[in-house]
């Protein structure tokens, strides 16, 4: 177990290196720092001095991969690739193009993101699973067919419409909650209700359908027939046997996304102006702040790989048949 974890941990490095190289190619090779400088400073009539000044301010005034003017090991270390990559691997994200410290920003904004994403995930899980269980309980009846139709219809509506419609009905017409905004501490609850509810509701379609197929596959198995033959009622078999066994794929599916919750939801946060990492990313994209986007890409990959590791561990915890070796 321990040696497996160490091996998995070491395997994360080549993956992160791959991510780093890919983003490096995207951000520095496809477009040179000169292009970026011109983009930031405005396209036309930029003097050479202004460009080189901007590059110097942002540490972009080194060669990309190989510094032939430096001596010894500095041939490698005095390059954009080396300085930027080492910073990322040590979680020193540096300053954004607008001059703010990215690491501090991320720390501040992770909590609001989590405050939206975690309740949405948990509540969504409960709602989806109960909806799916209801459909399976009433399987091959009109009730199930109606449930499936509702799922397909809900699935076919873009999440944007749920948000716009929800904001319009609950915040503008009924005036139950504020339209958007955020506050510190428990005062934020009234701002969070609507995004969480909308997030849950927009997930019912695909979530309910997915869990339904999971349960249906489980219901056909032999042990369920045995349970029924023992004389258990349908509800007892469903809740005690089927639900428990179906929890394995459900749990592992949830564990993968757990670390990514920190990244927040792009759309939700920007619609409800919640100062989380999602809206941070959107703002960076809109203002074309490459340093932030690069940091977020790297952070997202780290969290995803961490999620994969957690999944493996959770497999051994919930399913005694799986051994890590």
């Amino acid at each position: 177990m321990t040696s497996y974890l160490i091996r998995r941990f070491l395997y994360a490095f080549p993956l992160l290196m791959g991510v780093n190289i890919l983003t490096f190619v995207l951000f520095f090779v496809v477009n040179s720092p000169d292009d970026m400088a011109r983009m930031q400073l405005g396209q036309k009539r930029v003097t050479e001095a202004a460009v080189s000044n901007w590059k110097h301010q942002h540490d972009y005034d080194k060669p990309l991969l190989w510094n032939s003017e430096a001596v010894a090991e500095k041939k490698v270390t005095e390059t954009i690739f080396y300085t930027k990559s080492v910073g990322l691997f040590l979680f020193r994200f540096g300053t954004s193009d607008s001059g703010r410290n990215i690491g501090d920003d991320i720390q501040q904004r992770a909590l609001p993101s989590l405050a939206v994403a975690l309740p949405t995930l948990l509540l969504g899980l409960v709602v989806n699973i109960s909806f799916a269980l209801m459909m399976v309980l009433f399987r091959s009846s009109y009730l199930e067919q109606a449930g499936v139709v509702v799922c397909v219809v809900l699935m076919s509506i873009s999440s944007l419409f749920y948000i716009i419609g929800g904001q319009f009905v609950f915040a503008k017409v009924l005036k139950l909650v504020p339209i958007s905004g955020y506050d510190d501490g428990f005062a934020s609850i009234k701002f969070l209700i609507l995004p969480v509810l909308i997030g849950v509701f927009s997930g019912i379609g695909s979530g309910g359908r997915w869990y339904r197929t999971l349960f249906l596959e489980e219901v056909e198995k032999d042990y369920v027939r045995t349970a029924r033959a023992k004389g258990l009622t349908e509800t007892q078999t469903l809740f005690r046997h089927v639900l428990q066994n179906a929890m394995i794929p459900i749990l592992t599916g949830v564990v993968v996304v757990l670390p990514l919750l920190f990244m927040g939801s792009l759309i939700m946060e920007s619609f409800f102006s919640i100062p989380g990492l999602g809206s941070y990313t959107i703002d960076a994209i809109n203002s074309q702040d490459f340093a932030i986007v690069r940091a977020m890409v790297f952070l997202g990959s780290v969290l995803y790989i961490f999620g994969l590791l957690l999944t493996d561990i959770s497999y051994t915890l919930v399913d005694p048949r799986v051994r890590l070796s």
Binding site: L26, F27, V30, N31, M36, M39, L266, M296, G300
Partner: peptide, 22 residues
């Protein structure tokens, strides 16, 4: 796995930014 581990929205954003610059 490398490609998968990059959040797809961010990868799309990064690439589209690059296309815009280009």
């Amino acid at each position: 796995t490398t490609l998968n581990s990059i959040p797809s929205v961010l990868l799309i954003a990064a690439s589209i930014l690059m296309v815009q610059v280009y």
